[in-house]
Nucleic acid binder design. Structure first.
Lengths: 195, 195
DNA sequence: CAACAACTGGATAAAGCATATCCGCTTCGT
DNA sequence: ACGAAGCGGATATGCTTTATCCAGTTGTTG
C-alpha cells in the first residue's frame, strides 16, 4: 500500500469518528468523505460499507469500555463498582451520538462490535445481580434493570436544546439511588423482565 | 357531503388512530388507507396531508389530557397532583406510539396540537414549581426537570422486546421518589436548565 | 329509472435519499 | 519518465414517501 493511501485511511477513520460522534450512525459515507476532504470513491475503496468504517472507528473505544467493565467485576462492592463504571462509560457517551446508537440494541447487529456490546451488558447485569446478593439492592431489582437505565440516561443525553451537558448525572444519581437498598422503602412496581 | 363519504371519513380517522398508535407518526397515509380498507386517493381527498389526519386523530385525546393537567392545578398538594397526572397521562401513552411522538418536542410543530402540547408541559412545570414552593421537592429540582423525566419514561416505553408493559411505572416511581424532598438527602448534581 | 354529480381506487408520476460504482485523471515510487 | 496505485465525484441504482389523476363506480335526486 502506498504511503499516501495509508495516510488517507487514517484521515477517513478520524473523520468518521468526528462525524459519527456528532451526527450519529446514520451519517452517510459521503458525509464522512467530505469531512475528510476526500472523495466518496476513496472511502469506498478502503471500506466496503458504513458498517466496516464504523467497526474501524469504534473498535478501540468499545474495547476500552469493555475493559473497564471487566475491571469492575474485580471490585469488592458490586454496586459501587457498577455506579463508577456507568459514570465513566456514560461520560464517554455524552459526546458521542454514534457510540450511544451503537449501544442501543439493534445497531450493527452482525459485526464484532455487537459482541463487545453484549459483553459489556453482560458484565453490568452480573454486577447488578452480585449487588443484589450482597444486599445492596432494593427488593425486586435485577440485572434486567440495566437496559432500561441505559435507555433512560440515553434519552436525557439525546434531549434537544441547550440543556447542560451534565444533566444526565442528575438522573443517573436519582435512578441509582432508587435502586439502592434503603431502610423501610416501599416495594417497587413492575416486574423487571417478566419474572 | 354524501352520506357514504362521511362514513369513510370516520373509517379513516379510526384507522389512523390504530395505525399511528402502533406504528407511530411515520406511518404513511397509504398504510392508513389500506388499514381502513380504502384507496389512498380517498384519504387524500379528505385530508390534505399526514398532519391534517394526525390533527383529526389526536385532537380529542390530547385535549382530554390537557384537561387533566388543568384539573391537577386545582389540587392542594402540587407534587401528588403532578404524580397522579403523570401516571394517568403516561398510562395513555404506553399504548400509543403516535401520541408519544407527538409529545416529544418537534413533531407537528405547526399545528394546533403543538399548542395543546405546550399547554400541558406548561401546567406540569407550574405544578413542579409549586411543589417546590410547598417544600415537597428535593433541593435544586425545578420545572425544567419535567422534560427529561418525560423523555426517560418514554425511552423505557420504547424499549424493544418482551418487557412487561408496566415496567415504566417502576421507573416513574423511582424518579418521582428521587425528586421528592427527604430528610438528610445529598445534593443533586446537574443544573436543570442552566440556573 | 334515468342522469348526473360526488366519490373511489390504485396505478403511477414526482421527489428525495442513501448506497455503491466506474473510469478519466493525478500522484507516487522506482 | 513510466506504470501502477490511488483519487474524485458525477452518476446509476434502488428504495421510500408523497401526492395526483382520471376512468370507473356509487349515491342521490327528480
Amino acid at each position: 500500500m502506498r504511503r499516501d493511501a495509508e495516510l488517507n485511511r487514517q484521515r477517513i477513520v478520524r473523520a468518521g469518528r468526528e462525524v459519527f460522534a456528532v451526527r450519529g450512525l446514520q451519517a452517510t459515507l459521503n458525509d464522512v468523505a467530505h469531512h475528510a476532504g476526500l472523495g466518496v470513491g476513496t472511502v469506498y475503496r478502503k471500506f466496503a460499507d458504513k458498517g466496516a468504517l464504523a467497526e474501524a472507528v469504534f473498535a478501540e473505544e468499545l474495547a476500552e469500555i469493555a475493559a473497564w467493565a471487566r475491571d469492575a467485576l474485580a471490585e469488592e462492592e458490586a454496586f459501587d463498582a457498577l455506579a463508577d463504571f456507568l459514570s465513566r462509560a456514560l461520560e464517554r457517551a455524552v459526546h458521542n451520538r454514534g457510540l450511544r446508537e451503537l449501544m442501543r440494541q439493534g445497531a450493527l447487529e452482525g459485526s464484532g462490535l455487537a459482541r463487545v456490546r453484549a459483553e459489556i451488558c453482560q458484565h453490568c447485569e452480573t454486577l447488578l445481580a452480585r449487588a443484589g446478593a450482597q444486599g445492596a439492592l432494593r427488593e425486586g431489582v435485577t440485572g434486567a434493570d440495566i437496559a432500561p437505565i441505559a435507555a433512560m440516561i440515553d434519552a436525557v443525553m439525546a434531549l434537544p436544546g441547550e440543556c447542560p451537558s451534565d444533566l444526565w448525572r442528575r438522573y443517573l444519581t436519582i435512578v441509582l439511588d432508587g435502586l439502592r437498598a434503603h431502610p423501610g422503602q416501599p416495594p417497587l412496581p413492575g416486574a423487571g423482565d417478566g419474572g
